[in-house]
Amino acid sequence: MSEEQIKNLEAQFEARIARDEKIEPKDWMPEKYRKTHIRQMSQHAHSEVVGMLPEGNWITRAPSLRRKVALLAKIQDEAGHGLYLYSACETLGVSRDELYDQLHSGKAKYSSIFNYPTITWADMGAIGWLVDGAAIINQVPLCNTSYGPYARAMIRVCKEESFHQRQGYEIMIKLAQGTPEQKEMAQDALNRWWWPSLMMLGPTDDVSVHTAQSMKWKLKRKSNDDLRQQFIDQTVPQAELIGLTIPDSDLKWNEEKGSYDFGEIDWDEFWQVVKGHGPCNKERMNARVSAWEEGEWVRDAAMAYAEKQKERKEKQAV
């Protein structure tokens, strides 16, 4: 194809997206669109799968059977969501195994929030309430993104995640209404998870590199700063309602702009964790890599068995 022809196709392609048409796997698409989508969807999938680990810590130690089944079901959903998103990636011609390789070799990123440790039960509450809360803000607009398989996966994800945040907030309510010890546990978790949750919505708009292109392709509907503001505005009253204090002395309602002003985010910490030096980056990656490596003989065996069965059937048919 000549350069002009490609330019022409690209113009048509952008026009389709602007008209709110969906792009499907076999449609022509610019290479950059394909690559950007693989990157974003796989990052998202990796985040779901790595995200199972910090919460997985507490399955065996959940304080009641009711909490245990809710947590298990939530983490199981995360595995499901990882699976939906990897599948969406596969429609663009990259296999799940390749994507795993990228994760395990450190080439691919996942949400940095999962590199923080879960050290008390209240962290299960804080993750559900804050981390899932921030994730939902990011994800709901994606149900309408331009790439069909991604949009469909996100519709499923959002539908299923609706209980996740409630699950977490309910844990926090119970703690906040409990004994002083429990309340302290809840406040401590909020103190530790608040700032990383704000960071989770991404760097500020002035340094964010992908935003303009992503907006055009509907991979992003609002800027990081807008999303962060939305998250803060909706979360602060939820904290107040249960008597917990947001750990930000600069936080105050700004009547004029109709939203909260908030303090400086420690972006050095953010970049430290993104670059692989957070408290649990190594642990998370080791856990994923060893699950994958220790599972290899199992996956090979299942494949070998299926092939043998197929051969046997074919022989019988002769």
Binding site: G80, L83, Y84, S87, E90, R96, R152, A153, R156, A302, M303, Y305, A306, Q309, K310
Partner: peptide, 18 residues
Amino acid sequence: GSLHATDAEMALENARDV
């Protein structure tokens, strides 16, 4: 949606769970 499985039976089981 889709998923990975070695054979049809496993695909059905996985589909049920997923």
